[in-house]
């Protein structure tokens, strides 16, 4: 089962990149945390989401102000 920002999700994706595509995430400025690990976009395509286990995903907007 996938949990996205603490909500159960019915989406099915083989990798984080596939999931990002299904969610239509913006191409830039987004952070994605998989099971407490913050993963750069460059590794999303190689990061599998095997359905043998639950995955907890947090998605948030990066900010740059100060």
């Amino acid at each position: 089962m996938l949990y996205i920002n603490q909500q159960e999700s019915a989406l099915e994706a083989a990798t984080l990149a596939e999931l990002a595509e299904q969610l239509a995430l913006p191409a830039q400025g987004i952070a994605l945390v998989l099971n407490q690990q913050l993963l750069p976009r460059a590794v999303w395509a190689q990061t599998a989401l095997p359905d043998s286990t639950d995955h907890h995903i947090e998605i948030f907007q990066l900010v740059a102000g100060g």
């Binding site: 830039q28 400025g29 990066l62 740059a64």
Partner: peptide
């Protein structure tokens, strides 16, 4: 983490 081409408006 951050794409240098990101036009950050945040």
């Amino acid at each position: 983490l951050v794409d240098p081409n990101w036009q950050a408006l945040q």
